[in-house]
Design a protein around this nucleic acid. Structure first.
Lengths: 138, 138
DNA sequence: TGCTTGACTTAGACAAAGTCCATTGTAGGA
DNA sequence: TCCTACAATGGACTTTGTCTAAGTCAAGCA
């Protein structure tokens, strides 16, 4: 987990208590947290941290490629620390639970040139939607 | 275009001026409008229509399957009247322009059972991201 | 160790998108 | 035509996120 902190320091990050706490929250927990949840957990470790700092720090982590932004619903963005292995998401339509999944195949290859309309296509996001076992049982 | 109105009436929709106007806005224009843009166009036809009504009506159209919600960015949801032909979206990372595209292949089939974690998978959304010709030229 | 500096943090105001609710209006059936 | 349940209104409210001006502090340097 200090891997992440090391990498950040290596990139010239000025290391502050706030940034360390945000990085630790994400690094210690491989789930998909909203900015607000990150803030709540950060506050538990460092009560005086502000919302703006959490947003700033998350934005910086995303820009550095250490964390992915995931927008699976209309509500809050979520932050996915699993940025180093390409993956897609499977979302429960009822409770919003998110799992990382690794489909076979390459969806980029499925878009023929005739369907690209002159765009330079750079990436693709795939979101599978369904109902998780818990919700199905209930 | 009265097709849509007919279908809605057949489903027991109470036809009001407001609903007709919202349906016409979407039906007449095969682009991807935000709720606010729909409201603006509806106001042009019926000045006293309220924002809440536009949201309600869009929500009902989505529930009836006549219109798709598209959440391609963190900002406003967009509404896609092209609900009857399955398709995916290609989004410009700079200007936000959206094109409907029809990839070959079936991404649902690319998710093996071992990657479904007990979920009942019901659908999949694919969003291609790139740069449109206009933005690339600029 | 103790300055200095500019990057970082803070609190709170602000903005955008959307929801809620009490009241008022009206479509469509009797 | 009258009723009544369903729909519309508008304004307050919520959620998520951004911005800014002022204060703070990490890290390099003497």
């Amino acid at each position: 987990m200090s891997d992440l902190l090391e990498r950040l320091r290596g990139r010239g990050w000025r290391m502050t208590a706030q940034r360390r706490v945000v990085a630790e929250v994400l690094d210690g927990d491989h789930v998909h947290l909203t900015a607000d949840e990150v803030h709540a957990r950060a506050v538990a470790k460092l009560p005086e941290i502000s919302r703006a700092t959490v947003y700033n720090t998350l934005g910086e982590l995303v820009a550095l490629g250490e964390v992915l932004e995931v927008a699976t619903d209309r509500r809050a963005k979520r932050y996915d620390p699993n940025a180093h292995r390409p993956h897609q998401h499977l979302v429960c339509a009822r409770c919003g639970a998110i799992r990382d999944v690794h489909p076979s195949g390459n969806p980029l290859a499925d878009l023929p040139a005739s369907e690209r309309f002159g765009f330079t296509v750079e990436g693709v996001e795939v979101t599978y939607r369904g109902v998780c076992p818990n919700c199905a049982a209930a």
